[in-house]
Design a protein around this nucleic acid. Structure first.
Lengths: 332, 332
DNA sequence: CGTTTTATTGTAAACGGTTAATTTCTGAAA
DNA sequence: TTTCAGAAATTAACCGTTTACAATAAAACG
């Protein structure tokens, strides 16, 4: 690999002069500048960012620790974050959440000396929060948040749960199932709380068998639906707390010969792209902000990284909004 | 940030001893090893991988330059690649293809000293190929390939084009539209060639107006469909050369009140997940290999990175396979 | 014309590790 | 007792940059 030393030799100057050409060309004589730039071109010189990072104590790289892309919600956020970062001169390391072994990811990321971290995969009382704070690296959470606060952008999950549930109640459903991920995450915790609150507020019984905690994979959703189908007091509507899972429900129920919404109403959440497809038409919950959630996160992260002094924490809870499409209908 | 020097001081040893504890603990006395490890723990020491990378001249990081995730094909490949890389100790920088400004991405990536590159976004005669070769960094292409060969995994696009077209011909369609991306990429070049070959082989006219080259965005697909709808000899079937575009066609035509496949047959390509959804049921093309395409790519890349001497080039062309679902039907 | 600025370049040190070469120490063999 | 091998630790050099500081020469000043 050709280094600035090689360029210096070729141009007949000292190596720091080459460095100056790169960083502050006004500080160098026009004549030498030409010489050096010519040598750079001839040798096809590319500055070594690793060396620069070491010296400058910043890497111009960030880490995105994201939920799995098979949930399209994370497709949008990943795209937004990676592209915005790139436009602002940052490179993005991407990692996908791992059942279990998450700690090693954080550890690796910190060793990599990233300038900041964006994460969606934190638990309400995740000990990683304190570790990250101790490491002193800026980080912002999106989608999920932590009990200790910090910087985050989320949707009002409780309110969202109420919204979806009330929508189904208003259609005449009273036997409403809830399918979601682990409630030690703020998202599902809130969405479950909202569901329960809405049921109670209307004096509807919440039967424990209607509440299905799954690991959000298709198989686990299918199993949950199977179990619901075997119940005596079978629900007539399902609040599937992510669109990804709602699609799995819809698909499986249709495969089993049921008609949506005639036999079952399904309401999802996230308003991922495909839900608007004419053949899908999934009722869902979105938020009423112009900016996508990932954008808030990355904008704020880069502000934090580049600000002289720590800016005030971003604690953003977006207002949820119901989108009624064709997968929810009156109880028959 | 606490460095190995701090650990050394705390443990009362020299700094290289700390390094040896990290890299080859057998070379260090049990007693000192304990001392050092204790100090590491107490100070919460994390080795600086940037410094290590500089010295070792390898970063244990790779770059993935991918097509946009809104095409779900790249969702699967990205997931596969990032996860496999991580399991093998590599960190993945992700970039999404950019209309136009691709060169700067490659430049940035090379400056970052990545150990290898995986890319899907290369043109048949892309000059970047020679640049990458000159830079001496291992790289493998997936999905698309380059005229000069190199390391790649692709699907037989010509064959795939024939397969899809023949399927539609057999259903009685003779007026078949082709919608695809720019033909200076090997994928669309091949898929168009196969379509034309199949038409000619059956003595069917290929009307130039039926061939729509778009930029693969939803808007451009909609515009193409609009134009097709205005033709006198309107096609009765569409070969949309990625599932992403096929879904856009299906959605738009349904919105316009057409019925699929009664009014139009649609065949996609890639077999992305959602196409199997009961409400979508898109006919499509896949390949008959057990491994996903991205896996071939990343496996080979890591082999290239870690092999003593350059392994033989991987030039893999997977056999396409037709999946018939419900969006293609007999001509009415 | 001597002295002070200013512009430009070079020298040296540093970032945090790895690793080759060297030193120190121990204990066994002669 | 002397010698020497081997183990374990230290010292020094290096990776490719940036940057503080010193040196030099040219320009500006009174």
């Amino acid at each position: 690999m050709v280094s600035s030393k090689d360029v210096a030799k070729a141009a007949g100057v000292s190596q720091p002069t080459v460095s100056r050409v790169l960083n502050d060309p006004t500080k160098v004589n026009q004549e030498t500048l030409d010489k050096v730039e010519k040598a750079m071109k001839e040798l096809n010189y590319r500055p070594n960012l690793i060396a620069r990072s070491l010296k400058q104590q910043k890497t111009k790289s960030i880490a995105l620790i994201s939920g799995p892309l098979h949930n399209s919600f994370f497709v949008d956020t990943t795209t937004t974050i990676v592209n915005y970062a790139k436009e602002h001169g940052y490179h993005t390391f991407v990692y996908f959440e791992d059942q279990g072994d998450n700690l090693s990811v954080y550890d690796e990321v910190l060793k990599q000396q990233v300038d900041g971290i964006i994460l969606s995969s934190i638990f309400i009382d995740d000990p990683i929060y304190k570790e990250l704070e101790a490491a002193g690296v800026p980080f912002v959470m999106f989608n999920r948040k932590h009990q200790d606060g910090g910087n985050y952008v989320e949707i009002d999950n409780h309110r969202a749960g109420e919204l979806a549930t009330n929508h189904l109640l208003k259609l005449g459903h009273t036997k409403i199932a809830w399918i979601g991920g682990p409630t030690y995450t703020s998202t599902f915790h809130g969405r479950l709380g909202g569901y329960q609150a809405a049921m109670k507020a209307t004096n509807n019984e919440v039967v424990p068998e209607w509440i299905k905690q799954v690991d959000t994979t298709e198989e686990s959703v299918i199993q949950a639906v199977d179990e619901l189908l075997l119940l005596n007091n079978k629900p007539t509507a399902i609040f599937a707390t992510t669109d990804s899972m709602a699609l799995d429900c819809q698909n499986y129920l249709m495969q089993m010969g049921y008609r949506i919404p005639d036999n079952f109403s399904i309401c999802g959440m996230d308003n991922i792209n495909i839900t608007a497809h004419e053949a899908i038409q999934l009722s869902t919950i979105t938020h009423d902000s112009k900016k996508p959630m990932g954008l808030y996160a990355i904008e704020h992260l880069i502000t934090m990284i580049e600000a002289e002094e720590t800016p005030p924490a971003m604690q953003l809870t977006l207002e949820p909004k119901l989108i009624i499409r064709e997968t929810t209908g009156p109880k028959r």
